[in-house]
C-alpha cells in the first residue's frame, strides 16, 4: 500500500501532466496571488514600522464613528457593514463557482450578478467613507490658532488633545495615518475594482454561453480565487486600520 502510494506520488512528477492535478491557469493564479500578497505585505509592514515609531496614534473609534444618514456616534458601524458586504460577496462567489461545477448557466449568472453588486456596493461605501473623511473638517489647534482640517494624505486633525481657552482641542496628529490609510485602502479598492471588472467579463462570457460550450466553468473558478484573495486582504486591512 505504502509503496503504491509512493509510486503514484512519483508518477505525479513524471512529466506529461500537472503534478498538482491543476490546469496551468489555476496554478498561475495561485502564484500571482502569492506575489500580490507580497505587495500588500510590504505595504502593511511599512505601515506597522512607521506607526510604531510614533509616540501617538489616532483613536479609530473617534475617526470612524459616522454612519451616513445618522448623526449618532456609531464607532466602526459603517466599516462593519462594508466588511459584511464584501464577505457576503465572497459567499455569492462560492455559489457561482458551485453552480458552475453543476454546469448550471442560469445559476452562475444569478450568483455572479449578486457578486458584482456586492463589489460595487463595497466600492460605493468606500467612496462615501473617503468623502466623509476628506471633506468633514475638525477643529485643530495649529501654532496657537484654531484651524479646520479634513483627514487627508497630508493633514491629520486627530492628534492629542490640549487645553485651549478652557476646552479640549485636538492638535495635528501623525500625517502617516492619512497616507497609509488612503494608500492601502485605495490599493485594495483598486483590486476590488479589477475584481468587479473581471467578474463582469465572466458574466458576459457566461451569458454568451462560452463556458457552457467549453464544458467547464474554470474561468469563473479562477476569478473566484482572485475575489476571495481580495476579501482576505480586506480582513488584514480591516484588522490593521480599524481594530488594532
Amino acid at each position: 500500500m505504502e509503496t503504491a502510494l509512493a509510486q503514484t506520488k512519483q508518477q505525479r512528477w513524471a512529466g506529461g501532466k500537472s503534478p498538482f492535478q491543476v490546469s496551468y491557469g489555476k496554478l498561475m493564479m495561485w502564484y500571482f496571488l502569492l506575489s500580490d500578497s507580497f505587495t500588500f505585505g510590504a505595504f502593511l509592514i511599512s505601515y506597522g514600522a512607521i506607526r510604531f515609531s510614533q509616540n501617538f496614534w489616532v483613536d479609530h473609534n473617534a475617526v470612524f464613528n459616522s454612519f451616513p444618514g445618522f448623526e449618532a456616534n456609531l464607532p466602526l458601524a459603517f466599516v462593519s457593514l462594508m466588511t459584511f458586504i464584501l464577505i457576503f460577496s465572497s459567499v455569492t462567489m462560492v455559489m457561482a463557482v458551485h453552480e458552475g461545477h453543476k454546469m448550471n448557466q442560469k445559476g452562475v449568472e444569478k450568483w455572479l450578478i449578486l457578486t458584482i453588486i456586492g463589489g460595487l456596493a463595497f466600492l460605493g461605501c468606500q467612496a462615501i467613507e473617503w468623502t466623509h473623511l476628506i471633506t468633514h473638517t475638525h477643529e485643530v489647534l495649529v501654532d496657537g490658532v484654531i484651524q479646520h482640517w479634513g483627514t487627508t494624505t497630508s493633514h491629520n486633525p486627530w492628534g492629542p488633545h490640549v487645553m485651549y481657552e478652557g476646552r479640549m482641542v485636538a492638535t495635528p496628529g501623525p500625517v502617516a495615518f492619512g497616507g497609509y490609510f488612503f494608500g492601502i485602502t485605495g490599493f485594495h479598492g483598486f483590486h476590488v475594482t479589477c475584481g468587479v471588472i473581471l467578474n463582469i467579463i465572466m458574466l458576459t462570457q457566461t451569458k454568451m454561453g462560452v463556458f457552457q460550450r467549453r464544458g467547464h466553468y474554470e474561468m469563473v473558478e479562477k476569478a473566484g480565487l482572485y475575489w476571495h484573495f481580495v476579501d482576505l486582504v480586506w480582513v488584514f486591512v480591516f484588522l490593521c486600520f480599524y481594530l488594532i
Binding site: 513524471a14 512529466g15 506529461g16 500537472s18 503534478p19 498538482f20 491543476v22 490546469s23 496551468y24 496554478l27
Partner: peptide, 8 residues
C-alpha cells in the same frame, strides 16, 4: 511545473 514532457 505543468508542461514537462512524459518522463521529464
Amino acid at each position: 511545473l505543468n508542461m514537462r514532457t512524459k518522463g521529464m
